[in-house]
Design a protein around this nucleic acid. Structure first.
Lengths: 214, 214
DNA sequence: GTTGGTTGCCTGACAAAGTTATATACGCTG
DNA sequence: CAGCGTATATAACTTTGTCAGGCAACCAAC
């Protein structure tokens, strides 16, 4: 059966690939973005440097895989913190997002703050949203808030705005650690509370139907 | 007169240093962050690669100088857009900040999104705020809004929150250009309007006196 | 069972990067 | 004029990503 053999091969290949992603993850976490080199990566899994190129087109490709993995991990962490209260569930998204970023600053920088001008081959714009499980769960929890009457407006627009503020908060705390933000946790909580209070007071229109005048 | 001689030397040194910063600025703008190399920098000012090390300790030091320069440029651009209406003046800060970031994405990335774990030698935390003219003008314009009764709370806290949201907006637009934000300008305006409306509805406490419970 | 092609992995090499060590040349000091 | 220090240049070292090519094992077919 040639299919079975091919399947087994593909599986092995997928396994080694995810093993490489895992090693890259640890490498970034331990030594930072600049610690992630092809040679170190290969040594960690016991292969020659050039063998990495059998699984990834180039270094950018590794970074994309790392980003994908990080989004999945983040989504998993978020879903470990559910709540019956839709607002609390939404707050948990922000809290976990911040905890993820502040707990793994190196990886956060690598994944969320490095050039994404090139899309991985065969990916479209929509894939970015569809294939991003963390964004999906955020939108879902916003929808729950809208359904419960706690928020009003377009869920994707609200989710995007929350993402914007969350990202701004985390990345500033990471990039300018010496700026007197006060306690990082407290600043995250402040921004989260502020956003939830402010969003609940407005009707948020969709991102596409913004008034063009002015 | 040894003093005069020494002064002239210092001046020449400062001039070449700023010439190098200028060249670095152009290099980043033209070729992006990875286009900024010591060798290219030296070639651009007509010196040998190693001569750069007479003016900067290492590459990080160049990036710090570049950041300082960018902050000054940004502050200048903001102050070219004054207004009698304090809220409009504040809005101009956000607009110019966004225009700066979206117009020079390479430099924005280099200055605002790269590792700042190490402070330049002889700088303290306070210098970061004192020596940042862009932050200073932002705080001043927030103070004007507070004085006019348009905003309420601690000016530095309000300014920091505005910076957070502005940075989040710009960096997401830069890092994930394929995400369907809609028109970038419109998204910037949306976030700006949202923040000004939301801030005016609340009394913002200082960053240090956040409630510790919960 | 032997043969040929495909695949996976490795060795070696190259260019470009930051940085260190060493040499040279200019200008001030005595 | 002699000496010295600073500024600049040259060469070399290390590490990086990546290309070219080689070896060995496996699969298919005669």
């Amino acid at each position: 059966m040639p299919l079975s053999v091919q399947r087994r091969r593909e599986k092995q290949k997928a396994e080694l690939r995810s093993e490489l992603v895992d090693a890259a993850h640890k490498l970034v976490q331990e030594e930072g973005y600049e610690g992630l080199t092809i040679r170190k990566l290969a040594k960690r899994v016991g292969y020659a440097p050039m063998s990495v190129y059998s699984y990834f087109a180039d270094k950018q490709d590794i970074l994309f895989a790392l980003a994908e993995d990080a989004f999945e991990t983040l989504a998993r962490r978020i879903e470990e913190h559910p709540s019956d209260d839709p607002v609390e569930a939404l707050r948990a998204v922000m809290t976990e997002y911040a905890a993820f970023g502040l707990g793994n600053p190196n990886e956060y920088r690598t994944v969320f703050m490095t050039e994404k001008t090139r899309l991985p081959e065969g990916r479209s714009y929509e894939d970015m949203e569809e294939g991003n499980p963390a964004m999906k769960v955020l939108i879902r929890r916003v929808e729950a808030c809208v359904a419960a009457g706690k928020l009003k407006g377009d869920p994707r627009a609200i989710a995007t705005m929350l993402w914007t503020v969350g990202h701004g908060t985390i990345s500033l705390l990471i990039t300018f650690p010496f700026y007197p933000f006060g306690d990082p946790q407290a600043y995250v909580k402040r921004m989260c509370d502020f956003m939830l209070a402010s969003l609940s007071a407005q009707d948020i229109p969709s991102l596409t139907e913004t008034p063009l005048h002015c």
